[in-house]
Amino acid sequence: MFAIYPIVESLRLSLYQAGEGDGVFVGLANYARLVGEPYWAEQFWNAFKNNVLLFAMHMLIQNPIALALAALLSIPTLKGAATYRTIFFLPTLLSVVVVGFIWQLILSPLWGVTPAFMNWLGVGSFFKPWLGLESTALITVTLISIWQYVGIPLMLFYAALLNVPEETIEAARIDGLNGWWIFWKVKLPLILPTLGLVGILTYIGNFTASFDLIYSIQGGLAGPNFSTDVMGTFLFRTFFGFQAQLGDVHMGATVASALFFIILIGVSLYLFGVQRRLQRYDH
């Protein structure tokens, strides 16, 4: 009820334009504007492109790191596994606003520790105001996001790895496989469903959760020059308006619905294309 009604309502709103009373029914005209008019299309595709980049970087950086850390943590002989687990998961518990603020301070060219620390290491000349440069802002924000959220895939992988039955590993060891090959040939295939799950969670999170961090670090204009603009910040500016720009409920609903369809398509592709082919091994 609380999930469906807003979705239906925003789909309905996206088919109207401002006018007398409740608005005028215009069919798909708003969607045509979104991808047709240069002003909207430019922002839409830019935000979409950044979201895709964000997703790719999370898949290529965050999830392998999480998997590697989980594999290390699940080694039975590792001492202090619980401590490491807590440390890796801790940033996830912090509020996004706090994380954004802390990293902004750390990386600040004026008050941050980074310039001083890099000078001390003798590489001070490599310091750049990363959050302020078009070329580096998105990757910097992504790395901050990874720092914060790596704990979640880590926990999922870790739980899956612990579920791999001891006898299977024992059998592999007797067959003469070492730890490295056991991981690749035995454990990894067994946790494939989790890998898929993490992939889809990353996909959804990248469209929904990325807004918080980017808004708190770069503000509603997702600067510099919209280089960190994602669907979330684009939606925010369109729907609520920003300074001199008045908000537009109908275009906002259109962006929101487009976002909904993008997520829907992605998740369906996964469900029908990937999930069905995955086998669950009974143990």
Partner: peptide, 16 residues
């Protein structure tokens, strides 16, 4: 402008 002005916000400028 100051070093790293690209990442310098309004309150940073005020404090500076």
């Amino acid at each position: 402008l100051g070093n790293g002005f690209q990442a310098q916000g309004y309150t940073d400028s005020q404090n500076l």
